[in-house]
Simulated scan of single mutants.
Amino acid sequence: MTTEKSAAVELTDAMTALVRVLVYATVPPGGPGFTQPGDAHATLGNLSTATMGLPQAFRQIDEFLTGLLADGRLQVDGGSNAAPRVIEVHSALENAADYANALSAALGRAQAALESVSLRDSFQAFAPA
């Protein structure tokens, strides 16, 4: 028997694949996805925005599981009480939301630091004075 994947599972499968492609595109030096500092600037901004939405997704996952638990629809394999597991998931998702917020902020700072960085018209190696 095959089970169809939910939209959320399909999207996170796609997200995982896209991260793999992004990693390839950013392989140094310059990666095939970068041609100028503006590419890194835009990529950092997109990553910051993407991670900004994760805490809401985590809350919604938590609310879904909490609702199922409240309705008595969850159990652990073997039939035991799922409440301790859902409480553990809740705690882990709260931590994940905090980390995602911190990640988004750090990516935003990195993007801001690149705001005025551009390529030189001609390459000049920097030598110590």
Rank of each mutant, 00 (worst) to 15 (best):
M1V: 06
E4P: 14
E4Y: 05
E4T: 13
E4V: 06
K5N: 07
K5M: 15
K5W: 01
S6R: 04
S6C: 07
A7I: 15
A8D: 06
V9L: 11
V9G: 02
L11D: 11
L11I: 11
T12M: 10
A14Y: 07
A14I: 09
M15Y: 13
T16P: 01
V21S: 10
V21R: 13
V21Q: 15
L22Q: 08
L22V: 05
L22D: 03
A25G: 09
T26E: 09
T26P: 00
V27E: 13
P29D: 04
G30D: 04
G31M: 01
G31E: 03
P32Q: 02
G33K: 02
F34I: 15
Q36W: 05
D39P: 07
D39K: 04
A40K: 05
A40T: 11
A42R: 11
L44F: 09
L44C: 06
G45A: 02
N46V: 00
A50H: 03
A50G: 09
G53C: 02
L54A: 14
P55W: 00
P55G: 00
P55A: 06
A57S: 12
A57G: 10
D62A: 14
D62R: 15
D62F: 01
E63R: 09
E63T: 13
L69S: 12
L69W: 01
L69M: 07
L69D: 15
D71N: 09
D77P: 10
G78S: 09
S80F: 11
N81K: 06
A82E: 04
A83Y: 02
P84N: 01
P84V: 02
R85F: 13
V86N: 03
I87P: 01
I87W: 05
E88W: 00
H90L: 00
S91D: 15
S91W: 04
L93S: 02
E94N: 07
N95D: 14
A96S: 10
A97I: 02
Y99D: 11
A100Q: 06
A100S: 14
N101E: 12
N101C: 02
A102S: 12
L103A: 13
L103W: 09
S104Y: 01
S104G: 13
S104Q: 01
A106M: 08
L107K: 01
L107H: 07
G108E: 09
R109M: 06
R109Q: 09
R109A: 08
A110S: 15
Q111A: 12
A112P: 03
A113T: 05
L114P: 03
E115S: 14
V117Q: 04
V117Y: 00
L119K: 11
D121M: 12
Q124L: 13
Q124P: 04
A127Q: 15
A127S: 10
P128S: 05
